[in-house]
């Protein structure tokens, strides 16, 4: 049984929880796998912390919590401060370099992507930074297939925004560096 655990975290409004939902949807609806998605956020819906925990497995997920994730997707320094220490030994970090300056030495496998500036300057749609992160994640891991994730994103973004989101995804996929 393979079971991969992921934490995706950021500040409220960055779309971390939605990105987690897209991952779960891709796994369940398009890759024929099993997934659970849980979430937490601060009372202030913008600017506070937000996190989603996603488990993707070949069999139904029994224990639904993520304690030590295999993958941490961090969209803010706050996410590193909160969750980097929980990362499983040998786990990987995918981070938005526009938002994060310090990472602990304990983390070895680090992938870097300037998601916020790509979203703002190249996609011209700042809210797509989470999709840039998903593109990067898709490139760096085999958690879900690219086809499945693209399909889930298209299903879940507002109609009329599909093209911009696909651009964001592709740029994330192409520009991620590291490890």
């Amino acid at each position: 049984m393979t079971r991969t655990e992921l934490t995706i975290a950021g500040l409220g409004g960055q779309g971390s929880i939605l990105a987690g939902m897209m991952l779960g949807k891709a796994a369940v609806a398009y890759d024929g796998k099993f997934a659970t998605h849980t979430q937490a956020y601060s009372s202030e819906l913008r600017g506070g912390f937000a996190a989603a925990w996603v488990i993707i497995a070949d069999e139904p997920v029994e224990y639904p919590r993520v304690i030590h994730p295999d993958i941490l997707v961090a969209q803010a320094q706050d996410s590193i401060d909160r969750f980097a220490s929980s990362l499983k030994p040998g786990g990987i970090l995918i981070m938005d370099t526009d938002m994060i300056s310090n990472i602990p030495e304990s983390v070895n496998g680090v992938f870097r992507i300037p998601a916020t500036s790509i979203a703002r300057n190249e996609v011209n749609e700042p809210v797509t930074a989470n999709i840039v992160m998903l593109g990067a994640l898709c490139k760096c891991t085999d958690l879900v297939s690219r086809i499945a994730l693209e399909a889930a994103i298209q299903e879940m973004v507002p109609k009329g925004k599909t093209e911009k989101n696909m651009d964001a995804f592709r740029l994330g996929y192409e520009r991620v560096k590291g490890a």
Binding site: G24, F34, A35, H37, T38, V61, P64
Partner: peptide
Amino acid sequence: GFIGHMREQ
């Protein structure tokens, strides 16, 4: 609240 807010198939 855990399964109420949890997403799954």
